[in-house]
Write a protein that binds this DNA or RNA. Sequence first.
DNA 1: TGGGCATGATAGTCCCGCTCTATCAGCTCG
DNA 2: CGAGCTGATAGAGCGGGACTATCATGCCCA
Lengths: 300, 300
Amino acid sequence: MQIAQLRYLVALARERHFGRAAEACHVSQPTLSAGLQRLEEELGARLVLRGRRFEGLTAEGERVFAWAQRIAADVDGLQVDLRAMRDGLTGRLRIGAIPTSLPVVSSLSAPLCAGRPGLELSVLSMSSREIEQGLRQAELDAGITYLDNEPLSGVRTLRLYRERYLLLTTADEPLGQSPEVTWQEAAARRLCLLSPDMQNRRIVDSIMREAGAAPRPVLETNSISTLVDHVRAGVGCAIVAQSWLRPPGLPAGLHAAPLVEPRREHAIGLVWREREPEPLLARTLITLVRRLRREGLLPE
Amino acid sequence: MQIAQLRYLVALARERHFGRAAEACHVSQPTLSAGLQRLEEELGARLVLRGRRFEGLTAEGERVFAWAQRIAADVDGLQVDLRAMRDGLTGRLRIGAIPTSLPVVSSLSAPLCAGRPGLELSVLSMSSREIEQGLRQAELDAGITYLDNEPLSGVRTLRLYRERYLLLTTADEPLGQSPEVTWQEAAARRLCLLSPDMQNRRIVDSIMREAGAAPRPVLETNSISTLVDHVRAGVGCAIVAQSWLRPPGLPAGLHAAPLVEPRREHAIGLVWREREPEPLLARTLITLVRRLRREGLLPE
DNA sequence: TGGGCATGATAGTCCCGCTCTATCAGCTCG
DNA sequence: CGAGCTGATAGAGCGGGACTATCATGCCCA
């Protein structure tokens, strides 16, 4: 058996298309086809359902895919680790972060990059579900996501901070001077909210239900800055996480009031998949965050 | 990179000898040598310290070994799983069990083998430390060992029963009729105990210390049946786990009394390493044990 | 109904690299 | 100093993985 062939299967299962899978593997399409045939032959089982086009994997194929994914990720881990030992800490650390956590990422990534010139980061804004899947498929090294709302499986976690919720309004709105706003009051406003594929929105919805309210958002988006933009433009109010307002401060002309009744919090933290051996890159991030937390250098 | 080359490294690290490693891989010695050289070349790092003989691995080599071990185990898992899907449950399930747990293994293995003609078992008597290492190195699929005394890491567990301790004597000894014996009293007798590399012995020693006693065993062995033999031969008393006396009953002419002050118990259970995807073989064992426990078919 | 396009399999060829046997070189030990 | 052990090197054979070019089929739309 050949590692390349396992990668072919992984690519095919992800792309669901022979040509694109071949491209992803940097080989020609016949090479990928032949490699998969050889793999099927060696394993003595059909893995791919072939009609005139890709039609999915067989049950055996799914099983082999699950293993192959893991094996390929470990081979990558081996190579990254080795390069890190040779050239000092090097390679790309891929972090998936939910949008509301993006403002705190820099307080982790800045000390991480300091003094590690070879280290490269990818910070990807993703939904909590995409993060979970990305970790499982070893496309991410770590995630920053909710810890307590929709439980995760097979991962280790480290709490970073607790998310609190604010109503963001223009200062000249009726609620524009209130020190606190209830969820009930907020629900009655014209609201700009995140789209329902984001866990933040699902949290907001569930708190609303609990408060006996049903918001009818005038605008939905998956970008928080778009949310803020629309508040500033006077489209309506928005419900945002406190963390989002920290770094530059509150934009001029806007007002943010804590949401109460209920005053709810959700833990957000670093999440990574337990692997053995533990990749040096991930290890570095985790020990750094532990140290930051111990020394009280993390916000909130 | 090539899976075979990773296996060469794993074999070499285990055998610490090129010739034997080659034999273990079913290839010639030059093949293994050349394969390792190519691996070093591809990875761009020396892995093996070469003098005139094998002199260990470099730091990089140790790291690659750790990954390679994992990768090789997963490739095996893939193949075993696939065969299981084709031919029904087949392959060899390797279980390591501490000696005192051996009598209960058959109550697991018998229902496991029933109706699964393709399934083969290896039950290996090992120390708890060997079991821990065997699981880590993927040389075992599961273990039966202490759960609470010397904590395990990176594994999942399922309790089977609680171990209690008895003093085994000949019936004509001074204590040969007592319904109960204190650890203090036992310590004063001529004792036959397991050797100190076994956790059972370390448990006995710690309870003894706690009871303010210090046993001077007249005989040490790593075989429980040898222990019983020597009691029968009149060499002394022995401290054994209750489970050991269950299957054939107490041998004629012997007496077993529960040890009290303190009356101590230690949990013994099934232990397996968390892997993803979960191998079908291990999964079968675990669900079987869960069912047996739920239905109360496990002893004690 | 027929042309164009998308998709994946086949054919033919090249050559890399894995494997073997045979042999060499250096160290250790009697 | 010679025997034995250990690992590296040399040279030959061949399997299989990679490429380009082409084919077969299905689908869409005119």
